[in-house]
C-alpha cells in the first residue's frame, strides 16, 4: 500500500460562529482524481486552503505529501503541488511570460520550463503581451500553466474550466489524464458537471460543510438508486402492455414523439427485453443517471437519510451493483 498523498482526518473548521467544515475525512492516493462538488459556500475552497496550508483546522488533522501543510518546514511541500485558485488573477501590467517566470523563480524552476508550459497551454504567441489584454480563457490557461510548474505530485484545481472554450476544456482534461498517468493526484472542484465524469475516479459531494457522499460514480449511482432512463421511439403509450405502463413518464415536451421509461437498475434488463419485443419500436436510448443527476439528488433534502442507510450496508449492495450496472 502506498502512502496517501492527502489525508484529512475528522477536520472541523469554523470562521467565528460559522462552522464551514464538519468532521471531514478522506484520503487521496497517487494517480487518483477526486472531483469535489458542492454549492457555493459549501466548504470546497476552505478544504483547499487547509490542504494548501493557508489555514489551520480547528480539530482533526491534515497531512499532504507527508507534511503538515501549515508547518514552518513545509517549504519543500510547497514546491510539490500546483494550485489554481478560482477566478485566478495576475499582475495585469506584466506579460504572460514575465508572470510565469516570476512564479517559476519563486518555486525554483528555470525559464526553459516556462516556455514549454506556455507552449503546452497554447500561449506562446501571446506570451509577450500584457496580461491585461488577455481574455478570460487565456488567463485561465496561464493559471493552469502556473499550477503545472515543476510537474507537481498534487494538483488542486478550483473551477479549472471556467472560461475555457470546448476545445481548450478537452485539452485541459487530456492534460489531467496525462498527469494522472504520471502518478499525480488531483483534486478538482467544478460547477460545470458535464464532461467531468469521465475524468474523475471518485466524486465527493459536500453540503454545508458536511460530506454527503464519496465514492466512484458507480457507487454513487448505487447509493442514490436513481432510475435508468430508457427513451423509446415509435411506440404509442396507449398500446403498451400494462407491465410496462408503470415505468412510463409522460414527457412534458408535447412535440417529443418518444416515450420515456424510468427503470430501477435491477429491472433494467427485464424491461429492455420487453421493450425490444414491441412490434413498432424504431429506436431506443439508454441513459445512466449523470453526474448532474446525482449531484441534484445528493443536494436535495431526502438524500441525507438514504445515503447514510446505503453507506452502512454498502458492502453487500456494492456486489449487487457490479451485476446490475
Amino acid at each position: 500500500m502506498s502512502q496517501p498523498i492527502v489525508e484529512l482526518c475528522a477536520v472541523d473548521k469554523s470562521y467565528g460562529s460559522n462552522q464551514v467544515l464538519k468532521n471531514m475525512s478522506f484520503s487521496l492516493k497517487a494517480g487518483e482524481v477526486l472531483g469535489l462538488f458542492g454549492h457555493n459556500g459549501a466548504g470546497k475552497s476552505t478544504m483547499m486552503k487547509l490542504i494548501l496550508g493557508l489555514i489551520e483546522p480547528d480539530a482533526g488533522s491534515v497531512v499532504a505529501l507527508g507534511h503538515t501543510p501549515t508547518d514552518m518546514g513545509s517549504q519543500t511541500y510547497r514546491r510539490q503541488f500546483g494550485y489554481l485558485p478560482e477566478n485566478v488573477s495576475f499582475y495585469d501590467q506584466l506579460s504572460g511570460l514575465d508572470v510565469l517566470s516570476y512564479f517559476a523563480k519563486l518555486k525554483g524552476y528555470r525559464t526553459k520550463e516556462v516556455k514549454r508550459l506556455l507552449n503546452d497551454v497554447g500561449l506562446t504567441e501571446s506570451a509577450k503581451r500584457a496580461v491585461k489584454t488577455y481574455s478570460k480563457g487565456m488567463r485561465q490557461r496561464l493559471g493552469l500553466a502556473q499550477a503545472l510548474l515543476g510537474e507537481p505530485k498534487l494538483l488542486l484545481l478550483d473551477e479549472p474550466t471556467v472560461g475555457l472554450d470546448p476545445v481548450a476544456t478537452e485539452d485541459f482534461y487530456h492534460m489531467v489524464d496525462r498527469l494522472k498517468d504520471q502518478g499525480c493526484a488531483v483534486i478538482l472542484c467544478s460547477h460545470v458537471l458535464p464532461g467531468v465524469e469521465s475524468h474523475i475516479d471518485r466524486a465527493m459531494i459536500i453540503k454545508k460543510g458536511k460530506q454527503v457522499t464519496l465514492g466512484t460514480l458507480k457507487e454513487l449511482r448505487h447509493f442514490a438508486e436513481l432510475p435508468v432512463e430508457i427513451k423509446v421511439r415509435g411506440v404509442q403509450v396507449s398500446t403498451l402492455p400494462s407491465a410496462l405502463m408503470n415505468y412510463v413518464q409522460i414527457s412534458t415536451k408535447s412535440n417529443d414523439p418518444s416515450v420515456c421509461f424510468y427503470v430501477a437498475q435491477q429491472e433494467k434488463l427485464s424491461v429492455l427485453r420487453q421493450l425490444t419485443q414491441l412490434p413498432d419500436i424504431q429506436d431506443l436510448d439508454i441513459r445512466q443517471p449523470s453526474l448532474s443527476d446525482l449531484y441534484s439528488y445528493f443536494q436535495s433534502e431526502e438524500a441525507q437519510t438514504v445515503t447514510t442507510e446505503a453507506q452502512t450496508q454498502s458492502v453487500p449492495l456494492a456486489s449487487r451493483v457490479e451485476v446490475t450496472v
Partner: peptide
C-alpha cells in the same frame, strides 16, 4: 492567495 501557496 497564490503567492502565499508558494514556497516563500
Amino acid at each position: 492567495l497564490l503567492l502565499l501557496t508558494y514556497p516563500i
